[in-house]
Design a protein around this nucleic acid. Structure first.
Length: 895
RNA sequence: GGGCGCGUAGCUCAGUUGGUUAGAGCGCCUGCUUCACACGCAGGAGGUCACAGGUUCGAGUCCUGUCGCGCCCACCA
């Protein structure tokens, strides 16, 4: 076997294992299994040729769940959702083209699609490889591109079914329009931003009167399209004007004064201009009063022919000129600074323009009701629970979903218009003739579907729906969706609605909403902000395992992960620590001249007694008991998505129990040329079990070490990823061993503490005496070697209490420790003891106070009272001992 | 405008249903090249749990308010 290097180099092993796992099909799932376990990973919503840290984090968490489930014997399937997003694809390709100075509209649809395919060809595989490299164990056989044939079929099926049920309709409404992307946007794709602006107060002369009405607006250019002004019907100030008209300045159009609730008497002047074609509120008011809808801008937000002299101007230029002209006419009452909210395009940030347009909509109320019920009843569990409320909030206020987009990359809407009769034919297969009049002159709707429409079908379309496949039967409903809250409405809610609508079942049983990764300044990481960290770079530098671990360890449910290099350095050191523990194991085995280790059964290995001895060595009984406890806690924590807890738990166990104590104790057993004694087998087995426990969190390093460790074990699984995750085993629990090691640790700890305070020469062995009335006597005698080695103290062990005035010592409930040292360094010790005593007295006082409190005694549970009584007894005993120790210091002139 | 979350050690954060002397990592201080590891070992300092009230025998934990920070949703000119 190749000896291990002194320093762990992840770059050497991680690429190898990433490759190996793929080649050996470790993560391919058998689709005919009855086990219903798999997890979805969200698609990177903005795939741009590389991944960002948020994805890395999400994959780490998902992968931990996946590996853990697989190791527990579940048949697992993790579907990568990458590259499904039409939004992202179109955006990326547009950006690519823009760099070459090409605009989408210039090259036409066909040419544009060629670019899209080219891009996928170029980057699709690279992204996939990157994802594997950063440690995600997905099943790539289920990968689907947006335009995958099967997915296209699923999308059509879904559209047709909804259409037939009347849940999809075509209508003319005021929608959000991006004048740069030239497409409709859903409400969710419109990002509201606060900006500084102005409130312009305009005067509209009342027809046939000297009076004028003052209206306030944040967008003066829309006044060209005004078709009314509104006052509140209850507003006494304007009662005399009901039924009259005003003359619209600049356009010289006579428009009515209407009464409507849109006008709030308490806001501004209480008069509102009504522009049905350019404002959602006004649109509704326009419908109520049957007003004309005059659109004054074209699709690129330039003023159109309805804007009279302003035609052709950009909307902001038009605004400037209109304000100037009104001012000249004396029709501008005043300008106020005003903080307003504008809608911007999620993709490009352009201010969206409300625009009247004919689009396709999904009627969401009938879909939302069962979707809410599913969460309400617990058929879908949202974790952490706080997100349930957010989900309900949104679902309750849901509005119809505009699903048509004027983009070129995406699923075409399966609707055909008849040139002859004008009717619409919606069909699964491309129709040759109009379903209504039979005319062959049918033309497909040029629009494509919102990318989230197809994404909503993901949980079952990837399993073969609409066909009744074996995959669908065995994996649907799926068990877990692990995703970020930023996508709760976009994706999660819609998957639930569609899942219930099309399959009659929930798409997943649990939704775990994970934390968000932020940079050191706590900003959300994003490409546009420029603070995104490339996970490939970081993984290359620190190792994937360290990156995964550091992300997970800081991610308590419901909080954010702050990304920092310091943390990474720390977990890189952790990986190195494990590596070196393994080095110790392998090197000492070599020195022992041991034959290969080949236990019959890894899973059920029990620690063994050494030749001739009746009992298994203390440290072995102890470490297996600890391992057992850690296994129980790990399982529970992963099950409850408390990944940070598992990470802390394993970090502490491996570093501060396995390495600091177990390995140190084992060193004492070492004998050159001893061969593979039972004691060595115990060490190997304990280490093997530790690797299994850690594997879901740090897959690469554990796999490498495990392969080396178990190379001669017959019938072992091909990969650690396929080995069994340790489970609690009542036979391995050994509380006596745990207590004994605790005592041993406190003896050594007390001795080290004394030595440090006395500033004794670290190498010089000091003579000492241990007095004890408890089991510590046996333990100290049994582990004299360990005490001498680990604390550099040669102990005489005496049953009973320390004599008064016996000199320097530490006093604990279990034992007294006396060291024979020169008196010179005693001051430091006295100070320390004084401090300890003060602390104990404080605790003692508070316990006393509690126990003297009648109400406490009357109302607190007996168990609590009893525990405080016991503690008090211990405090008092310890104080007595400390006093004795202090007296001893005073008396010990020169022992 | 509505809603959610967060203020705990110098920094980043844990703290599961209220119950011992509030924890971890990093950083800092002291001493160690001890034959797995200086990406290490041993020891140590450091916190009126944002503030003010309240409930309780008992509050970092529950309630109310104040201040500071972050986020989500929202068609009020």
């Amino acid at each position: 076997m190749q000896p291990l290097d002194k320093v762990y180099e992840p770059q050497k092993f991680e690429p190898y294992w990433a490759q190996w796992w793929i080649e050996n099909g470790v993560f391919q799932a058998a689709s005919d299994s009855p086990a219903r376990m798999y997890s979805l990973v969200i698609p990177p919503p903005n795939v741009t040729g590389s991944l960002h840290m948020g994805h890395m984090f999400e994959m780490a968490e998902t992968d931990i769940s996946m590996r853990w489930r697989r190791m527990r014997g579940y048949n697992t399937l993790w579907l990568p959702g990458m590259d499904h997003a039409g939004i992202a694809t179109q955006m990326v390709v547009e950006r690519d083209l823009a760099q070459k100075g090409i605009q989408r509209r210039e090259i036409g649809r066909e040419k544009f699609l060629e670019h899209v395919w080219e891009w996928k060809e170029k980057y699709g595989d690279r992204i996939k490889k990157q994802i594997v490299r950063i440690g995600a164990s997905c099943d790539w056989s289920r990968e689907r591109f947006t335009m995958d044939e099967g997915l296209c079929r699923a999308v059509r099926e879904a559209f047709v079914r909804l259409y037939d049920k009347g849940l999809i309709y075509r209508g003319t409404y005021l929608i959000n329009w991006c004048p740069r992307c030239l497409t409709a946007l859903s409400d969710l794709e419109t990002v509201h931003e606060e900006r500084d602006g102005h409130l312009w107060h305009l005067r509209y002369p009342v027809t046939g009167s000297q009076e004028y009405l003052v209206v306030a607006t944040t967008r003066p250019e829309t006044m060209l399209g005004d078709t009314a002004v509104a006052v509140n019907p209850e507003d006494e100030r304007y009662r005399h004007l009901h039924g009259k008209t005003v003359t619209l300045p600049l356009m010289n159009r006579e428009i009515p004064i209407i009464t409507d609730e849109v006008a709030d008497p308490k806001f501004g002047t209480g008069v509102v201009k009504v522009t049905p074609a350019h404002d959602p509120n006004d649109f509704a008011a326009g419908k109520r009063h049957n007003l004309a809808e005059i659109t004054v801008m074209d699709e690129t937000a330039h003023m159109n022919e309805n804007a009279g002299p302003y035609a052709g101007l950009d909307r902001f230029e038009a605004r400037r000129q209109i304000v100037a002209h009104l001012q000249n006419l004396g029709l501008l009452e005043k300008i106020e600074d005003y903080r307003l909210v504008v809608g911007t395009c999620q993709r490009c940030g352009t201010v969206v323009e409300p625009r009247i347009s004919t689009q396709w909509f999904v009627r969401t109320k009938p879909l939302a009701e069962p979707a809410m019920a599913a969460v309400e009843s617990g058929r879908i569990q949202i974790i952490p629970e706080q997100w349930r409320k957010v989900y309900f909030e949104w679902m309750t206020n849901i509005r119809d979903w505009c699903i048509s987009r004027q983009l070129w990359w995406g699923h075409r809407i399966p609707a055909w218009y008849c040139e002859k009769c004008g009717e619409i034919t919606v069909a699964r297969e491309d129709p040759e003739r109009c379903a209504h009049c039979g005319s062959a002159k049918v033309k497909q709707d040029p629009d494509v579907l919102d990318t989230w429409f197809s994404s909503g079908l993901w949980p079952f379309s990837t399993l073969g729906w609409p066909d009744d496949t074996a995959d669908l039967r065995s994996f649907y409903p799926t068990s877990l969706l692990n995703t970020g809250f930023d996508i709760l409405f976009f994706w999660v809610a819609r998957m639930i609605m569609f899942g219930l609508e099309f399959t009659g079942e929930v798409p997943f049983r649990q939704v775990y909403i994970h934390a968000l990764v932020r940079d050191a300044e706590k900003h959300k990481m994003s490409k546009t902000r420029g603070n995104a960290v490339d996970p490939m770079e970081v993984a290359e530098k620190f190792g994937t395992d360290a990156v995964r671990f550091s992300l997970v360890v800081g991610a308590a449910p419901g909080t954010d992960v702050v990304f920092s290099e310091d943390r990474l350095t720390g977990y890189q050191a952790f990986a190195n620590k494990i590596w070196n523990a393994a080095r110790f194991v392998f090197l000492s085995l070599e020195k022992a001249g041991a034959e290969p280790w080949a236990p019959e059964n890894l899973q059920e290995f029990r620690p063994q007694a050494s030749g001739g001895a009746m009992e298994v060595p203390l440290e072995d009984r102890w470490i297996f008991s600890r391992l057992n406890d850690v296994a129980e806690q790990s399982n529970r924590a992963i099950e409850q998505f408390r990944y940070h807890e598992v990470a802390h738990l394993l970090y502490h166990f491996i570093w501060h129990e396995f390495c600091d104590w177990y390995v140190e104790l084992k060193k004492l057993r070492f004998q050159e040329g001893s061969g593979l004694t039972p004691e060595w087998k115990n060490l190997l087995a304990a280490f093997e079990r530790t690797l299994r426990l850690l594997h879901p969190l740090m897959p690469f390093i554990t796999e490498e070490l495990w392969q080396r460790l178990t190379v001669h074990v017959a019938g072992r699984p091909r990969s650690l990823a396929l080995a069994a995750y340790p489970q609690y085993d009542v036979h391995l629990s050994d509380m006596r061993a745990e207590r004994e090691v605790e005592v041993l640790k406190s003896i050594i700890g007390a001795a080290r503490d004394l030595r440090a305070q006395m500033k004794l020469d670290p190498r010089k062995v000091v003579e000492g005496t241990l007095y004890s009335k408890s089991a510590a006597v046996e333990i100290a005698r049994g582990s004299a070697g360990a005490i001498q080695k680990l604390a550099a103290i040669n102990l005489e062990v005496v049953a009973g209490s320390a004599p008064v005035n016996s000199g320097v010592h530490a006093a604990t409930p279990e034992f007294d420790l006396v060291l024979r040292v020169p008196a010179a360094e005693v001051e430091a010790r006295r100070e320390k003891l004084g401090k300890e005593k003060a602390q104990l007295e404080k605790a003692c006082d508070s316990s006393h106070r509690q126990l003297q409190n009648e109400e406490f005694l009357a109302k607190a549970p007996p168990a609590v009272i009893e525990s405080i009584r016991q503690k008090l007894g211990q405090y008092e005993a310890q104080i007595a001992k400390l006093n004795q120790a202090l007296d001893g210091l005073d008396a010990s002139g020169n022992p």
